[in-house]
Design a binder for these strands. Structure first.
Lengths: 256, 256
DNA sequence: CGCCACCTGTTACAGCTTGTTACACGGTGT
DNA sequence: ACACCGTGTAACAAGCTGTAACAGGTGGCG
């Protein structure tokens, strides 16, 4: 089950890619809106004009939005406040656009969670570069899990290759771990030398918060049986009495 | 980096938080470096001065780096090129710092993957706001998977609550899915109305690329047996002959 | 120092999960 | 019409997984 939880999001990058980013252009000035929308269309984006927060929300409700270009002065509405409200609910990248470029205003924009801030009048090509940078960054974030799947973890002479899902002993011999054993190992590898409580381990393995009984202890024992030279005196996967368990090894991570 | 990695396990926010961001200040000018490093120290960051790419790499090799402030003019080295190289290998946020602020240079910076671009001379408070914004954004990205874990998916009258790991039928009755069944459901929910090949499904479920035989088919059959009114004539989880399977329902996602 | 409660390791077991295999049926192409 | 391919399904075996019970060790308190 945990495995599936990991891989689901890693698999997104490998299954389908949406090719046309969908942008909202939010400005109460119709002419500015149209000009920018057309420009972005020509650059290969789906650009949708909005004049108010309500229109923005309507678009968000209707489908995926990849980025919002949000003017600071929106008639009766403040773009900065809209940005703050949207950020509290959404991860969608937001670029604030303003004719005013005083530093304290820029800071306010960043503080409410804008991804970038562009001063009018702007060079369209620079705007484009920023749009692309912000989109690329968002794409990179979305693929983080996928990339992590290609990592090789080294600890205490052992190797865990996340992409191949293979665990190798110091002598190079592969051992077979069950799905739960692998999940436990991954949690430990992600937290070298940090004692983890049983609840923390269970949660990290995808638990729903229910009390686990002694399941983690048994699982630890099983993993020890496979990776410890002497499971009765573990050196890699140690117990911290009253706390939980700790991977007592440094972990080195390489791209797979 | 390690922290960001184990967010894939859905447990980052619940296991450990690293509280002091670690920044690299990269500038060949010692005075600038020192001034900035001290300023950032006073603002609560761990700021480490570097003068060359080699020093940057040494720091990256020694431990987690949360953000790199990278000057464009680095004596014999070009900050933009260093940025490009680092970006190809790393997700670490990079802010380029330059005395030159022509638009084409800024665009070059964004194109090589910089997260932000600051012109010298800069207002230290504005730099700080940007550092914080970039760090906050990185943190948000790192917590994406965790947030997804709190999501509720609705499809065809059914509900999957990711946090509780509960699946409910249209009549509100909970059904029990096995771990693999849940994993399959998640893959489908992440790709509504998109036909997925068996290989794609297996990969998204954490497969290591090995041929799966008929396992996915059997699993689909089992999930159908639990969620279809008539498993012999499935309406939710349909077969696309010669391709694979598709979730024939719209999916609505709510924060949990 | 001794006692006791708690913590952890371990074993055995039962139930469930999971993938493989084999067969049947329907669809498609020649 | 026939052959082949793709998919659904049932049966089965092996493995996985957590629970329960017991034993030994540890730490705190009197």
């Amino acid at each position: 089950m945990l495995r599936a939880q990991h891989s689901q999001y890693g698999g997104e990058g490998r299954i389908r890619d949406v090719t046309i980013p969908r942008l909202l252009v939010v400005d109460d000035d119709i002419e500015t809106r149209s000009m920018l929308t057309e420009y972005l269309h020509r650059q290969g984006f789906a650009a949708l004009p909005c004049g108010t927060e309500a229109e923005v929300r309507a678009q968000l409700g209707q489908g995926r939005v990849d980025l919002i270009l949000l003017d600071v002065m929106l008639g009766d509405e403040s773009g900065v406040e809209i940005c703050a409200r949207l950020r509290a609910e959404q991860d969608v990248p937001i670029i604030l656009v303003s004719a005013l470029s005083a530093d304290h205003q820029r800071m306010a924009g960043y503080e409410v969670g804008a991804d970038d801030y562009i001063a009018k009048p702007f060079n369209p090509d620079l705007l484009l570069a920023r749009v692309r940078a912000v989109l690329a960054r968002a794409r990179r974030s979305a693929s983080l899990i996928y990339r992590r799947q290609t990592s090789v973890f080294r600890f205490g002479g052992w190797t865990y290759d996340a992409r191949r899902d293979e665990v190798s002993a110091p002598d190079g011999v592969q051992i077979a771990l069950s799905r739960r054993e692998t999940a436990l190992l991954k949690v430990l590898l992600a937290n070298p030398r940090i004692p983890l409580t049983r609840d923390e381990i269970a949660a990290a393995m995808g638990g729903d918060g229910d009390e686990q009984g002694r399941a983690i202890d048994v699982l630890v024992g099983r993993l020890r049986g496979k990776i410890e030279a002497n499971p009765r005196e573990p050196s890699l996967l140690r117990t911290e009495r009253g706390v939980g368990y700790v991977l007592a090894a440094d972990v080195e991570i390489e791209a797979g």
